[in-house]
């Protein structure tokens, strides 16, 4: 194993981490402010990917596709909030899970209805499609580097939005005490719609970014959603900072685990068994991490209402 390979894997872990953050940020905001478990968040990720692919194919520009996916996911998020989600805030979590799971099924079949059953084509813009050489002579895909930068920029922007703006203040107040900010005259219904649309836009953005290096297909959001739930549980539900830290930890642990475990185990057992066992344990690793975190910090690393 070389240093270059190790560095490349760390970058890969970071890239997975920032992508998870884009998903987890919306999820944790929605849970923190509205107390809502939203399984349909993965569907918004998928919608982002499909809209970006379709618009990019139509206009020939990835960037127009990316903008369209942001707009479409935000609009769809607002629409879903007003028509369905709004009725769920006072229900218990089981009702929310059932209703948002129904949304998952409707979005999947609706997407099939609109776009057909076959995966769509979406490529990164030409100038990001190849590898770049990093200092030290390490070649790395330019597009993945762009995802890392875009994700960190979004994280910084979101941090400013929450800590410095009026909307951010209302969001923080909403997390602390929902009834009180309504009593203070903030239009809580409008705030909820805005937060939901913001979360949806982040998911759609992630879907479009990731769609360019993965398969844009029905159900592409669900595996990411599961990881995003792990992230918000580790990070502390409702905490943006927790989501960022946990997303990077999960990204790094998952990537490095898959890469290092089979090699490490090969030292203590026969090679092909080591590969089998190693990859099996690697796929469990983030769940083990979540269990360990919950044992020592039952509210996650950065509890929002501490």
């Amino acid at each position: 194993m070389t240093v270059a390979l190790f560095l490349e894997q760390i970058l890969n872990g970071l890239q997975l981490g920032v992508m998870l953050f884009l998903m987890a940020a919306g999820l944790t905001l929605i849970f923190g402010v509205m107390g809502l478990i939203n399984l349909a968040h993965g569907s918004l990720f998928m919608v982002g990917g499909f809209v970006c692919a379709a618009v990019a194919a139509w206009t020939g520009s990835f960037w127009i596709g990316l903008a369209a996916s942001l707009a479409a996911a935000a609009a769809l998020g607002a629409l879903v909030e007003i028509t369905v989600i709004r009725r769920l805030y006072d229900r218990d979590h089981l009702d929310q899970v059932l209703a948002t799971f129904a949304l998952v099924l409707m979005f999947s079949e609706g997407t099939r209805f609109v776009f057909g059953s076959f995966p769509l084509y979406l490529d990164p813009p030409a100038f990001l499609s190849g590898p770049v050489t990093l200092p030290g002579g390490l070649p790395y895909p330019a597009y993945r580097l762009a995802i890392i930068i875009a994700g960190l920029a979004v994280a910084a922007g979101l941090g400013l939005l929450i800590s410095r703006t009026r909307l951010g203040m209302q969001i923080r107040a909403g997390e602390a005490d929902r009834e009180m900010i309504a009593a203070l005259g903030v239009d809580i219904r409008f705030l909820y719609t805005v937060v939901f649309a913001l979360g949806a836009a982040l998911a759609g953005f992630a879907g479009a970014l990731i769609g360019a290096i993965q398969s844009v297909q029905i159900g592409m959001g669900e595996p990411v959603l599961i990881l995003a739930f792990v992230v918000i549980v580790i990070g502390g539900i409702g905490s943006i900072r927790g989501a960022l830290v946990a997303a990077l930890i999960v990204g790094l642990v998952d990537t490095l685990g898959r890469f290092l475990l089979p090699t490490l185990l090969a030292g203590v057992m026969e090679a092909s068994a080591a590969r089998g066992v190693g990859s099996a344990i690697a796929s469990m690793l983030i769940y083990l991490l979540m269990a360990v975190v919950l044992v020592f910090k039952p509210k996650g690393l950065f509890p929002a209402n501490a």
Partner: peptide
């Protein structure tokens, strides 16, 4: 299926 699509696109991007 989709696994192959993802792999090939990322492989080409990695040069």
């Amino acid at each position: 299926g989709g696994m192959g699509i993802s792999f090939m696109k990322q492989y080409a991007g990695a040069g």
